[in-house]
């Protein structure tokens, strides 16, 4: 595929886009968020990103070596998984936890189901949810500037909108996981991916719009001082937590999102509604990861109902 000249049967004109350069682009697009995370949270964050990425690549290599399979670490997909998991970890979590998550994500979620292209849910998010369920304490303890404090979303959940500063949330000067805090850094990466043609707006767009409509309508029922489509509240919900990271980088994962256009729109709407439900009416303040992995599981069904009919099929008999 990568050679320009092929002596083979058709097709002769091939796209130059390969899995490995898509994954490389995604890695580059994640760099602003990673860099901001390291700037924001210090050396711990850098170590965490290195450990999760290295563990993911190493796991993939060792598994494929042991199983006598083709070694695929060159396609960068393990790098993306490891990096995304690292960005989803709190900066204060112990490093072994990140490594364990990477092993789980690559080994159980990805390789046991057949490797890249066969995984039934996003490996990084599968691993994050595994860690979140197993180690709820360390995975939800966020320390910022030496102080342990609730994330802005937790403040909103408690109903104290006044403790939330939307500007800080936009820039990223808030407690949270390594990569999710800075909306600006994530948007820079997302714009890069859109310009390079790696992702399009269909999934993240419908996701965010649906989510805004959902919290706009239902927000007022869960917090006292929030009105119908309250701009402050909506901004805080949009910039808080993993919504941006999830919408641009994880919901758009090629393997675990629908390939049909209608399917992608249904997928986005589903994500928006689920995230809204989990955040407003669920037990915890955040719900992006669960929303995405649950929707991942529904992708085969979504694809089945939105499969386009070939010309001439399905007409009147």
């Amino acid at each position: 595929m990568e050679n320009k000249l092929n002596i083979s049967s058709s097709p002769h004109i091939r796209s130059k886009i390969t899995s490995s350069n898509i994954m490389l682009m995604v890695t580059i697009a994640l760099l602003p968020a990673s860099a901001f995370g390291v700037y924001n949270f210090g050396m711990n964050a850098l170590l965490m990103l290195i450990v999760t990425t290295a563990a993911a690549v190493l796991t993939e290599y060792i598994y494929e070596k042991l199983m006598h399979k083709k070694i695929t670490i060159g396609d960068f997909s393990a790098v993306v998984t490891g990096l995304l998991l690292g960005l989803n970890m709190p900066p204060t979590a112990p490093l072994w936890m990140g490594a364990l998550g990477s092993v789980f994500g690559i080994l159980i979620v990805k390789q046991l189901f057949g490797g890249l292209g066969q995984n039934f849910m996003n490996p990084a998010l599968g691993a994050r949810c595994f860690l979140l369920i197993s180690f709820t304490g360390p995975m939800t303890r966020f320390i910022y500037d030496g102080e342990t404090g609730p994330t802005p979303l937790a403040y909103i959940k408690e109903g104290s909108m006044s403790s939330v500063n939307s500007m800080d949330m936009l820039i990223g000067r808030i407690p949270g996981t390594i990569g999710e805090t800075s909306v600006i850094a994530i948007i820079i990466g997302a714009i890069f991916l859109i310009l390079m043609g790696i992702i399009d707006l269909r999934i993240p767009g419908t996701y965010i719009v649906t989510f805004v409509i959902f919290v706009g309508i239902f927000g007022q029922f869960t917090a006292a001082d929030v009105g119908f489509f309250d701009p402050n509240y909506i901004t805080a919900q949009l910039c808080g937590g993993g919504l941006m990271l999830g919408a641009w980088f994880m919901a758009t994962d090629y393997v675990t999102s629908p390939i049909t256009k209608q399917g992608q729109i249904i997928f986005g709407i589903l994500l928006g509604v689920l995230t809204g439900l989990f955040r407003l009416f669920g037990g915890s303040a955040e719900g992006v990861s669960y929303a995405i992995i649950i929707s991942n599981l529904l992708v085969p069904l979504i694809e089945r109902v939105t499969l386009p009919k070939p010309f001439g099929k399905g007409g009147e008999k």
Partner: peptide, 15 residues
């Protein structure tokens, strides 16, 4: 040892 709680919850049974 930090227990991996997921193993005594439902998903752990399947794993």
């Amino acid at each position: 040892y930090t227990p991996i709680t997921i193993f005594i919850l439902a998903p752990g049974a399947f794993l």
